[in-house]
């Protein structure tokens, strides 16, 4: 992604469509569940379009734009309407609001895709800048580090994430070195460049666990599947959580849900 600029004037009401992402659909059910619980706590009315599959990112990043467009067209159809679309993944959100218009530049249906892009939010950005929430009434006793996923670069999501996490009672968010460095996932990059991807993951894990946190968090299950899978293979003890899970669990701890 280029230095991402989120679309201006996105719709922000509490009636939303949830794009739960293919990774949550296949592997991380609880992350999507936490997203729903968090949004419903905030009073959102959630529609989960049944025909949703994937945002098209794997093919887009691989350079297979013809196939990616096929998937994006499907997504546009499934997510018809004018409600805000909320995505608990920085890269899937960026795929819709930045990647899709890029690969449709020369396509006749660009306006349809543009309209889809212009109402898409990454979850934390939506909570803080869409709904105006700046304090999280949760409680969570833990020391954590956070991986700033690359697809949040240039967006307001990192700031939103910091705002929410910093306001949780008991939660200690430790800074890490070289936040700007990628974890080495990059979609199919992780399998086409396995050696470099692995070296990058090793470096990232080193930074993430340097302060011996209880939990390593991120707002993108793509990154987490990669470096989390590495951590698991290495037998590292730190628990991994999506930020949505921390938000949800902190509400439970505080007796709010």
């Amino acid at each position: 992604m280029s230095l991402l600029h989120t679309p201006p004037n996105r719709p922000a009401g509490k009636s939303i469509q949830l794009m739960s992402t293919c990774l949550c659909d296949a592997f991380y059910a609880d992350v999507a569940q936490a997203t729903v619980e968090v949004l419903e706590f905030l009073g959102c009315d959630i529609e989960l379009p049944d025909g949703q599959t994937c945002c098209g990112q794997p093919a887009f990043n691989s350079g297979d734009w013809a196939n990616s467009r096929k998937v994006v067209r499907h997504t546009a159809k499934v997510f018809a309407g004018d409600k805000p679309i909320v995505v608990p993944s920085g890269s899937c959100a960026a795929m819709i609001f930045h990647g899709a218009p890029l690969e449709f530049e020369k396509e006749a249906d660009l306006p349809v895709i543009r309209a889809l892009a212009d109402r898409t939010w990454e979850l934390l950005d939506f909570i803080v800048h869409g709904l105006g929430v700046t304090e999280w009434p949760g409680k969570f006793d833990a020391k954590i580090t956070v991986h700033r996923s690359c697809h949040l670069r240039g967006t307001k999501s990192p700031e939103a994430m910091a705002t929410l996490l910093d306001s949780i009672e008991g939660l200690q968010v430790e800074p890490i070195d070289e936040t700007e460095q990628c974890c080495g996932f990059g979609g199919t990059f992780a399998v086409t460049f396995p050696n470099i991807s692995n070296s990058m993951g090793t470096l990232k894990i080193e930074k993430l666990i340097a302060c011996k946190p209880d939990i390593v968090a991120a707002a993108d299950m793509g990154c987490m599947m990669h470096f989390g899978g590495m951590m698991e293979k290495q037998g590292l003890p730190q628990k991994r959580m999506h930020v949505a899970q921390i938000l949800r669990d902190s509400l439970k701890n505080a007796g709010k849900i």
Binding site: M1, S2, L3, L4, N61, C150, H151, R153, G154, E180, Q181, C182, G184, F185, G186, G187, F189, A190, S197, M200
Partner: peptide, 9 residues
């Protein structure tokens, strides 16, 4: 490239 965008930044 992992398309991380650091270069653009």
């Amino acid at each position: 490239s992992s398309l991380c965008g650091a270069c653009n930044e």
